[in-house]
Amino acid sequence: MIYFLCMVLFAIGLYGVLRKRNLIKIIIGLIIIEYATHLLFILVGYRKGGRSPILAPDQEILKIVDPLPQALILTAIVIGLAVTALIVAIAMRVYDRYGTFDITKIRRLKG
């Protein structure tokens, strides 16, 4: 059930990407999709009553949540930030060229 709520968040981002005209709204939709994906990975790796994957000197290892999705998502978050910056740079260039963020007006490929 909680996976399905995560998917609903994904679908909202998808709606923004597909339906919105403003370029900023499309970027915001992409960011929401990214968050939903990261959250789904961590939800799959959660263990009920588990401890965080940091060992302490005088404690027995009993139940620890899955460290593998956390390691994968840790790199994915930083990549997501870099890719978002790249998209923002492209959007600013588009604004310079065409003077608008409306994607229906960006038709012609001016030099």
């Binding site: 970027i27 990261h38 965080s52 956390q70 840790l74 930030l81 923002v88 600013m92």
Partner: peptide, 23 residues
């Protein structure tokens, strides 16, 4: 129970906010 990700996500969120406000 993912404190590494919580720290990283917090900082990344602030940076994304700065970049988007700049846009």
């Amino acid at each position: 129970k993912a404190p590494d990700l919580a720290i990283t996500q917090l900082v990344v969120e602030i940076l994304i906010l700065i970049i988007l406000i700049r846009l």
